[in-house]
């Protein structure tokens, strides 16, 4: 796996890459879904502490996971957003559908 993940008691933390665009998003989506299935994840956390760039492809990944996990009664949150990522969340309206801690 190219990205970094941590799992604990049904909670999966995805450490988002430095740059998230369409090119990076495909791998990120595949790996995350694989882990969600394999470990019966109920709680998903996206950690942005290393992320300097994200475009709307990243929004697609997050909304997709919210939807999939929502069907199964799971919950999704985001943490360690810098100013740039906050702006991306704001412009896309993502801060309304995902808990930010």
């Amino acid at each position: 796996m190219e990205n970094y993940y941590e799992k604990e008691n049904g909670c999966l933390t995805v450490f988002m890459p430095k740059e998230i665009d369409h090119h990076q998003a495909n791998l990120l989506r595949m790996e995350t879904d694989l882990l969600i299935d394999a470990y019966h994840v109920r709680r998903l956390v996206f950690d942005f502490s290393k992320t300097e760039f994200m475009d709307s492809s990243g929004i697609g990944v997050i909304i997709g996971r919210c939807r999939n996990l929502g069907y199964q009664g799971g919950e999704v949150s985001a943490q360690n957003l810098n100013e740039r990522i906050q702006k991306i969340f704001l412009v896309s309206g993502l801060q309304k559908i995902i808990k930010i801690v």
Partner: peptide, 15 residues
């Protein structure tokens, strides 16, 4: 099906 968010042009216009 590719999970495109449909936000591409909205982002261009916002930024």
């Amino acid at each position: 099906e590719l999970e495109r968010s449909g936000m591409g042009f909205a982002f261009m216009e916002a930024f």
